[in-house]
């Protein structure tokens, strides 16, 4: 049977691209987002779930346990941004960013471990950002949430190694998604100029790193964060 993958945030952007990417590679993909998905494929199942709702996540995993009854790969993709100076960031939006970007991957990983430990090549992949090593002004909350994801990734890698689960993260720079819609062209150019490779990354670049993490030969690769374009 083909590998079973769960991707959060598949209604658009990177998540949607990854779902299609892995469907093309014969995987069974379970996706989720707050709204419906336009992905129509016999090996795709979609759940409308708020990723910050613990009970809804429990329900999702109960369903996965019943059908398909297993899980090989979890991609914690969903994320939101908050591009504001600290002095102007409402506490409510800081909480929302932390809930979505850090608590959600925490909850999904925690629940996924139960199924992943029975897999032959179990993988957890998180999404970080170059906002962490670049310590970007105006993105304190977003960068802090991704710092949390990175530390979580490294510690989780240690805690689940006994189950054979690897846990890694990919940290893209700016990619053309809804996440950076509100960021000015000049700011994006300046950001790209700070990378070692002065080009914007694409969805394919993200998928390429994930392909590497996923392959069975990468069983010794864990607790790593790979920044696209080079950063740090």
């Amino acid at each position: 049977m083909s590998a079973v993958m769960l991707i959060t945030g598949t209604s658009r952007g990177i998540g949607r691209f990854l779902a299609n990417h892995y469907l093309e590679r014969d995987m069974f993909v379970i996706g989720c987002s707050r709204g419906p998905s336009d992905i129509a494929h016999e090996r795709y199942r979609h759940f409308e779930v708020d990723v910050t709702d613990e009970k809804a996540i429990d329900g999702l995993f109960r369903d996965i346990r019943k059908e398909p009854g297993r899980l090989d790969i979890l991609i914690n993709n969903v994320g939101i941004a908050s591009m504001n100076p600290i002095a102007l960031t409402p506490v409510s939006s800081a909480r929302k960013v932390m809930d979505t970007n850090f608590i959600a991957p925490f909850m999904f990983s925690q629940r996924a471990i139960r199924l992943l430990r029975k897999s032959k090549h179990p993988r957890i992949i998180n999404i970080s950002s170059i906002a962490v090593p670049f310590r970007l002004e105006g993105e304190a909350v977003y960068a802090a949430s991704k710092s949390a994801v990175e530390t979580f990734t490294r510690i989780l890698a240690k805690e689940v190694s006994g189950f054979g689960i690897t846990c890694n993260a990919v940290g893209p720079g700016p990619i053309r998604t809804a996440l950076i819609r509100g960021v000015g062209e000049e700011k994006i150019k300046a950001l790209v100029a700070r990378q070692s490779i002065k080009e914007m990354a694409t969805f394919e670049d993200v998928a390429n790193v994930m392909d590497f993490f996923i392959r069975p030969e990468s069983r010794m690769v864990t607790g790593q964060v790979v920044y696209l374009g080079g950063a740090g």
Partner: peptide
């Protein structure tokens, strides 16, 4: 790790 594994198994069996 053994304790975590056992507790997860017990939770799964209860479920």
């Amino acid at each position: 790790l053994g304790l975590v594994t056992l507790l997860i198994d017990i939770e799964d069996n209860l479920a």
